[in-house]
Amino acid sequence: MKVLAALFMAVILAGVCDAAELSIGLIPEQNVFKQVKRYAPVGDYILKKTGNKINFVILPRYGNILESFSEKKLDGAFWGSFTGALAITQLGVEPIARPVNPDGNSTYKGYIFVRKDSGIGNIAGMKGKSIAFVEKATTAGYMFPMAWFKKHGITDVDRYFREHYFAGSHDAAITAVLDRQVDVGCAKNTIFDMLSQSDPRIGSELMVIAESVPVPSNGLGLANGIPADVKESIRKALLGMADDAEGRDILKTFRALRFIPTSREDYAPVFDMARDAGIDIKQYKYLNK
């Protein structure tokens, strides 16, 4: 009887030991509180399917995500496209999976938008105006507009614009333009489209001046040191969410159709855009001024 109890405990403990507890960072793609609410069910699902507990850590800045990754000892994060590229390049993070948007795309674009009644219709109209970026470490919120500005001959935004700052999140940038806090805004189209559904003013009062090429949507990347079986179990859980009724309900709340596998190659457009923007990803300093 004692032998059986010991064996039973060994099995239990083995199961417990096999389960990992991972800290996954969440970038401020939108309102940080909304971010937590959005990703929490996904974390619960992963726990249920794999036994691995996911603790989400809000990262208030896109910018210090890499430091936070080390300081907070994160095991992974749902990276943005640019931060994901940075993490792959500088931290050796392994992409696992990314969501497919409700429109069926697993990518997003960068928007540069103004109020329709601002009188701004092009790059020339932006001169001397104020602009809200998102973060230096974002594709749609900084890198794309910088590349677009460079493409249109503007290399010094400090001079061209009267004022610029980093809203910190895409929805903040959209709201800042909508609320006439700034004249021009930069944000990702997915957040733009999502907010326009909840606030019809966005669709009716704002207009998009420019948009970027598609880049990978925010996906999960795990640190190099995470055991392969853990990575595989999490990958498997995410990829199988669409096959599961519970998973499908979570995906609906998450506003995604499914998760698809993601690799380094999927980030090629980001690397190209960074080159176009004159950014050396390896050396890039992404802290906001």
Binding site: Y165, A167, N288, K289
Partner: peptide
């Protein structure tokens, strides 16, 4: 309140802003 707070948390701008 939540939106303002998130804005404040995530925004990186000059001190006045």
């Amino acid at each position: 309140y939540e939106a303002h707070l998130s804005y404040y948390i995530t925004a990186a701008a000059n001190s006045d802003m």
